[in-house]
Nucleic acid binder design. Structure first.
Length: 635
DNA sequence: GCCGTTTTCGGCCCGACTGTTTTCAGTCG
């Protein structure tokens, strides 16, 4: 929800050209919206539209389940690689769970005509600026509607002005504190940037958790939230801590607000503090009793959708699941009555929990297998946990080789031998040297002659070093039309071929699909490197007919890479998940350009785990013999 | 708005906290 609301807040660019083309006022805004959506993939474009429609319905005060239904459709589109255009053509839209008659019509109209009149008509029922108000923390649909109807406020700018001029005073249900909260929310929205990239969030979390642990009295501190689930970007950091019996929680939360990274304190209480850091990201610290740590960790790790599903299961059994533990309904009710008027911590001290100490206990008490944090997105993991069929997720130690890295021969900083030595130190059984091909001029890409000489050098190193197999490969460019940057006869001399797109990354979908299918079809191509070429927060990358790509990759025996380097992480979790279910083999590679980068594959592992990958799904988790067999089978 | 092997109508998405209130509405995760 937040992502969509934030991006909807973008004002159309000013300027005579835009004015001339689209006029001024709401129509111009709408035209700009369609223009901007044009640059996105069809799935995310539609998902954003359904999120917007849900927001409009909420502000209009329609029955909440209508908005929920549209939100579900948005999520179904975002979480899948279903080829929407094809589904429209085949009349199979109905097979997408959550898509009914109304959503179907919107999707069909957008696919066929590029826009939907149902959509246009719905969002025209409220001023466009109201939707961006939803991005303000503390402001919800009901209050926004009230501000609009009773004070004629239609945008963030008008809201700011109204607060300054005292125009909000006298509104029922909105007191001084609420106004201050809204004011802060507007400031936050202005200063908060994009979501923070996972590696930076990990580093920040590590530092802050270490600082929390160093405070006297703290016995345990761990990060929760989307960071623990390893989402590729993180909105804020949640840290949970326990303290010794004689320590005072309020002293800990206060010390936390004095950390050097803190720019301002958003809230400070006995057991919780929220601060904004100089990294532009909010960090929350919660002090939790040791006996309830597992329940709190489960609760604050999320996701929301996963937790709602768990609570539903608890409810069916007459149980209540909250951040304090799992309780029998009547037990929790009784405890709440006993603690009457006081907060939930008082209720928790009176109630006897069925499970609360550890996450494992909670899942077990609900007859669920333990669900790894990376899987907690309600993408089917709860059902698998019920059947005890969760995948045994891959871990870093499962990787036994590297299939994609560079040396000084092209744009790397280490020699063949240095890279091989480092791979050996990492405990790898093999490493494939894959320098750039000739089109990558800026990266000193190798022409055929240099490549063959390079191959001889690699073989020499392989003969010299014991305890590691050093193979010669290439990262061969996939040209814009799908042809490769080397002749087949050259590729035939190599042990292994990674083929990657580096240019023409704004190609339209059909052309891109054709290009990629041609590359997959080449019998010497073993892996498609960073298939889309996307860069997180920078460049969207290529969009394909994913079904066709997965099918071709599975049938031909071509693996797809999860490139572990930031900001690539390409394939992403959703596509990697679809690839697995289509029977496609994956690789997790560092694309290392230095000896130090070799082995930095944590982020790639994170993506693979979120995709549900196990050892058998990852080529470089297999012994060298299996990799050679893989190559031989395609040739 | 969507869904259904008990339902084509009636139920979906739960629980806690905050602020504004004196019993609850709105927001959040």
């Amino acid at each position: 929800m937040c992502g969509v609301v934030m991006s909807m807040g973008t004002d159309p660019p000013e300027g005579p050209a835009i004015d001339a083309e689209y006029g001024r006022g709401p129509m111009r805004r709408q035209a700009f919206f369609w223009l901007r959506l044009g640059a996105m993939s069809l799935n995310s474009k539609l998902a954003e539209m359904f999120q917007t429609m849900a927001a409009v319905l909420e502000i209009r005060g329609e029955p909440v389940f209508k908005a929920i239904a549209f939100t579900r459709v948005a999520r179904a589109l975002d979480d899948s690689t279903i080829d929407i255009a094809k589904a429209v053509q085949d009349g199979t839209l109905d097979q997408i769970k959550g898509v009914g008659a109304s959503s179907r019509k919107v999707i069909e109209d957008v696919v066929r005509n590029g826009r939907s009149s149902d959509y246009d008509e719905l969002i025209a029922t409220i001023p466009a600026g109201l939707i961006e108000l939803l991005g303000i923390s503390g402001l919800g649909p009901k209050t926004i509607a009230k501000l609009w109807r009773e004070r004629d406020i239609k945008s963030i700018a008008e809201l700011s002005a109204a607060i300054d001029s005292g125009k909000l005073e006298g509104l029922a249900g909105i007191g001084a504190k609420k106004i201050e909260q809204i004011k802060q929310g507007i400031e936050m929205l202005a200063t908060a940037g994009k979501r923070m990239g996972l590696p930076f969030a990990m580093e920040l979390a590590q530092t802050i958790v270490a600082q929390v642990k160093a405070l006297p009295g703290v016995s345990r501190a761990e990060p929760a939230g989307s960071l623990r689930r390893c989402k590729e970007t993180v909105g804020d950091l949640d840290i949970l801590a326990t303290i010794s019996a004689d320590a005072k929680p309020a002293e800990i939360t206060e010390a936390f607000t004095k950390f050097q990274q803190v720019t301002h304190v958003l809230g400070q209480g006995d057991t919780k503090s929220s601060v904004m850091t100089d990294a532009g990201i909010q960090v929350d610290l919660r002090i939790v009793p040791p006996d309830h740590f597992g329940a709190a960790l489960q609760y604050f790790t999320g996701s929301k959708e996963h937790n709602v599903h768990l609570r539903q299961i608890a409810q069916e059994r007459g149980l209540t699941l909250n951040d304090w533990g799992l309780y029998k309904d009547e037990e929790w009710e009784k405890a709440k009555a006993k603690a009457k008027g006081k907060d939930a911590s008082h209720a928790a001290t009176h109630a006897k929990a069925i499970a609360s100490k550890s996450e494992a206990e909670i899942y077990a008490a609900l007859d669920l297998a333990y669900v790894e944090p990376e899987l907690r997105e309600d993408r089917g993991e709860v059902e698998l946990a019920q059947q005890n069929k969760l995948p045994k997720l891959i871990v870093q130690a499962d990787l036994v080789g590297e299939l994609h890295c560079h040396t000084t021969a092209s744009d790397g900083t280490a020699s063949i031998e240095e890279m091989a030595q480092r791979a050996k130190e990492l405990g790898y059984a093999y490493i494939v040297i894959t320098d750039h091909s000739k089109s990558q001029v800026q990266a000193r890409g190798l022409d055929a002659k240099r490549l063959l000489a390079h191959a001889k050098e690699v073989r020499k190193v392989n003969d010299k070093l014991k305890g590691i197999e050093v193979l010669i490969g290439t990262e061969c460019d996939i040209l814009a039309d799908g042809h490769l940057d080397y002749e087949d006869a050259v590729l035939a001399e190599l042990d292994f071929v990674v083929a990657s797109p580096h240019t023409a990354l704004r190609q339209e979908r059909d052309k891109a699909t054709e290009r990629m299918l041609r590359a997959i079809d080449n019998k010497y191509v073993n892996v498609i490197g960073h298939p889309t070429g996307r860069l997180i927060n920078q460049r969207p990358g290529l969009e394909f007919d994913w079904d066709a790509i997965f099918k071709a990759a599975a049938q031909s025996g071509t693996a797809l890479e999860i490139n572990a380097s930031w900001p690539r992480l390409d394939l992403d979790d959703v596509r990697a998940r679809s690839a697995i279910s289509a029977g496609v083999m994956l690789t997790i590679d560092t694309d290392a350009h230095s000896a130090r980068d070799l082995g930095s594959n944590e982020l790639g592992i994170a993506v693979a785990r979120r995709a549900g990958a196990t050892v058998k799904h990852v080529l470089n988790a297999q012994p060298l013999a299996a990799v050679r067999k893989w190559v031989a089978a395609k040739r």
